[in-house]
Design a protein around this nucleic acid. Structure first.
Lengths: 159, 159
DNA sequence: TGAAACCAGTTGATTGGTCAACTAAAAATG
DNA sequence: CATTTTTAGTTGACCAATCAACTGGTTTCA
């Protein structure tokens, strides 16, 4: 127990402004979930989270394009481009150039990519179920509603 | 299967598996809120989000130490160390070494740091109010509950 | 046509964040 | 005491993410 001169330190942390901020709570929880998800995916199929996101998106779409993914999933297209590149290098994703519009690449899962997708899907589903296990239907519904509202609010520019 | 032409592309994005994952929704919303918060803080007081976090924590505590902040606020101490360093360089935070325990630095806001704190606080509070404006008390309460539960779930190691 | 605007995707610079190794100091233990 | 363990804080390596600039291709339209 050091702290020679008494300062209003630790005691006040409970009602720290930050702790009341939804955004702060959100970012902490999200960081932890992220770390957990990354670990699970790495152990199960050796993918990073962002790689998995791409695989999942492409896998679900069947065939799609980078710009569509970026728009629909609200991911940075630069990041996406790099991730796709590495997945192509790993042979998990196939890119085929469009015959007419030469800017466009059609993305799809390779056979290997599909296998990885099929292997990872149950793992991630399981995890989602685990995460929901402690939540009631009502809580999940409200949680989604709040997320929707926050997402809309986050797009307002005026503040 | 790999049907070349009638691929279920864009159309199916609405009920994409990822969209149902709480973690995915969470990370999207969080990213957007983050970007908004960063913009607001930058415009209002020229701080980054992580700098503001440190200022807010130190400002609320009055006087504190790096290790305490790291523990209480669950922030990485390496990151914290760098942030504090840059804030000291900017003259917003003062560090005073403990007379007895020479490992310890006591952190506090400088006069300038306090001014920034006082200037930023209403802005961030305002933003929080804006974000809550669309939410009922009930929704906020449930949202917090869910975050708490998810945080606990995110710390379980077994999956 | 041909110039301007636009779109798809890539790349580079920079920052944020995580993790682990490290230094220095203090505390605990025997 | 001397040695081991713990703690405070720094640093370096590394990856994820954001942003902006850029290339090359396509559309628009005067």
């Amino acid at each position: 127990m050091n702290s020679p001169d008494l300062a209003p330190t630790d005691a006040t942390f409970g009602d720290l402004p930050l702790h009341q901020y939804l955004t702060y709570r959100l970012s902490r929880v999200q960081a932890k979930l992220n770390a957990q998800g990354a670990r699970v995916l790495h152990e199960a199929v050796g993918l990073t989270l962002s790689q998995w996101r791409v695989i999942a998106l492409v896998g679900a779409a069947g065939q799609t394009r980078l710009s569509v993914l970026a728009r629909e999933a609200a991911l940075d297209k630069g990041l996406l481009s790099r991730n796709v590149k590495s997945l192509i290098a790993q042979g998990l994703i196939l890119a085929r150039q469009d015959d007419i519009d030469h800017r466009i690449q059609h993305l799809s899962l390779s056979a290997e990519g599909k296998r990885v997708f099929e292997r990872a899907l149950p793992v991630t589903r399981m995890r989602q179920e685990w995460l929901r296990a402690d939540l009631t239907e009502e809580e999940i519904r409200t949680f989604r509603t709040v997320l929707d509202k926050l997402e809309i609010a986050s797009e307002r520019l005026e503040f």
